[in-house]
Design a protein around this nucleic acid. Structure first.
Lengths: 349, 349
DNA sequence: GAAGTGCGAGAAAGCGCGTCTGCATCAAAA
DNA sequence: TTTTGATGCAGACGCGCTTTCTCGCACTTC
């Protein structure tokens, strides 16, 4: 703004450009560019001279400009709600790490899970020409999926399968069934399920599998639902499940570990039941807290870094073959046996 | 690559540009640009026509190009190690949310805290012309600070004060002293401190304040140090502190909540001491787990969203006045009284 | 010694955008 | 009717970069 002279060297507090490096090294601007492009044709001597000049000036290639021209930004968007909570915090950490390792640069959009908010997040990511969007929570509306496809932007959804996009998920229903079988094998007939009113597909599938399998074998399933699937929700669910002393479950499957912790604490404080003698508890996620002595929770393991690795792999595949049909990756979970649930004889190896 | 014709409408799976919108709407390209710039001079009628065309084509302004031209990217970098751990996960969540609210777009660099890794992170962020860098863990070397200043990039450091950059921190030493006074007021003379070998300035300050104040009043301070300041580290520290039955502390100040949890669990499992009757525990951070019934931990509160708000405010100020001297923001902490420590009479309101 | 080969490097053309310039157009003032 | 001013809009330019394209130069080959 100040000076419009072409050669104004008004470079106080500004990023230096390739042109300045070129001048400093006495070469052309394109030579500088080539020096920073692996595999480009520059003589070793000239490259060294350029690198020296770049070092001296503190030059750093402008990825905005590079991305503009190359039509790829190396940016990858992560859309997530409450990234500080339980399993999700591990997923975010694993994904950012995996993406950086891959040479991508993660943008984290921390927002709500309403359609409006998701669409706003998508707009932001489109604006930066993000190479892909990974959705950790919330279900993208179909317009979202369409728009991503139209713009050629890979879209990966974690923990949802019904979206028409690539997704990586676990067998929630199967895990629910396994939880039921685990309790049944111990001879328990009066089961409980602790979930939340704000149900997501994930939690609904877990409940469905659990309930279905239980009822198939003639067991009953009492239900407690907290407001949300967190610690407080677990306490609320426990209150519902253990309010009537005559009609209490002998085992409870909790929709995730946080809920299990809330429920366990409630039971310890407000009932005389001891865990696991009178009551078996199984959680879900196997976050580090589950192995803490205070809880020692039997739970389904769902490894965040494995999931992140699969998400990134899916992304690679999608970039390689943009037109392949949506892939649905299904990861295994493993029941980690700890002290919060009695272990049926058949499970003791 | 395929066709070099100027008017090749080979727009399959590509982002649409302003030029295409202009053609579609029958206006000039600059009109499109103006339509998307608030306060630019376009007639209402033309703007509407343009918006319609943009909608139809799914046009989205390219922020890469916009940032290139405007010399501001709206990108803000967060550099963090282990963003899934304890307090830090809340800080990351609060910062991403605050930044998005401000209209910025957070890039999260999840990396180690060695100098090399920090410098690599900085390079990445410079490459994207990030408007600012916020460092959540690790101490930036002075070259880092210099380079940021030279490039005119605001640098904000959280939880470190010795860096020459803007920082927001809490009074760790003061909190340490307060912890000591809290125990002393209860008549306790044999204190303990649970920390980690991988000490950071933060934890060192807490320890220093605690130890100093304690010894000033003639109390002794036993020390247990785990490998890291996490749950496992707390257990290790506890092992050291409670190994010799004859020489056990009557109160322990833990460097953070995770350490406190580890220590509490160890004590419950391996000793007959009951908390808080025989042993008072105070932690640091007040992460949600601290209020769980299993721990009910007395701890220093350090609100993540407050800290995030201050960081963003500092960023605003720095952008407004690039040349002001480094600001050192010091936030208050508050001791939250819960059940893990006996409450001295003088503390009961 | 002339023609062929290949590498290195400068000039120039954009990538998509915001903005400045200058030319129309039109309403109001003279 | 002419002058003045305001206004809308197309065209040109530049942001920093990569990637042709083209040419010069050294080196081989008969």
């Amino acid at each position: 703004m100040k000076s419009k002279n072409k050669h104004a060297s008004n470079d106080d507090k500004q990023y230096v450009s390739a042109l300045q490096v070129a001048k400093h090294a006495g070469v052309s601007r394109s030579a500088v560019s080539r020096a920073f492009t692996p595999g480009a044709s520059v003589s070793a001597k000239k490259r060294e001279k350029i690198m020296e000049a770049a070092e001296a000036l503190g030059y750093q290639v402008n990825d905005l400009a590079r991305g503009l021209l190359a039509r790829k930004s190396r940016l990858v968007g992560l859309v997530v709600t409450n990234p500080e909570l339980g399993y999700r915090s591990h997923l975010v950490a694993a994904l950012t790490k995996a993406l950086i390792h891959r040479g991508s640069v993660p943008i984290v959009i921390n927002t709500g899970r309403t359609e409006e908010e998701l669409v706003a997040a998508q707009k932001t990511l489109f604006g930066y020409r993000a190479e892909a969007t990974i959705i950790l929570s919330g279900s993208p509306p179909s317009s979202f999926v369409d728009l991503a496809r139209r713009n050629g932007q890979p879209l990966i959804v974690l923990g949802r399968s019904e979206t028409g996009a690539d997704d990586v998920n676990i067998d929630n229903e199967g895990a629910g069934r396994e939880a039921a079988r685990f309790f049944l094998a111990d001879g328990i007939k009066k089961l409980g399920f602790a979930g939340a009113l704000s149900g997501t597909p994930t939690t609904i599938e877990r409940e469905y599998g659990f309930r279905h399998e239980a009822e198939l074998h003639g067991a009953t399933v009492l239900t407690g639902n907290g407001q949300n699937s967190d610690y407080a929700g677990g306490q609320e669910a426990a209150q519902q499940l253990f309010a009537v002393e005559s009609d209490r479950p002998d085992a409870v499957f909790c929709v995730n570990d946080l809920v299990a912790f809330g429920l366990i604490d409630y039971v310890r404080k407000h009932t005389k039941l001891s865990i696991p003698e009178d009551l078996s508890i199984v959680g879900f996620d196997d976050i580090p807290e589950a192995s803490w002595d205070a809880y020692n929770l039997t739970t389904f393991q769902q490894d965040a870094s494995t999931m992140a690795a699969h998400a990134v792999a899916l992304l690679d595949r999608r970039q390689a073959e943009p037109d392949r049909p949506p892939a649905h990756e299904r990861l295994n979970t493993r029941l980690i046996l700890r002290g919060s649930a009695r272990i049926p004889g058949s499970y003791k190896s």
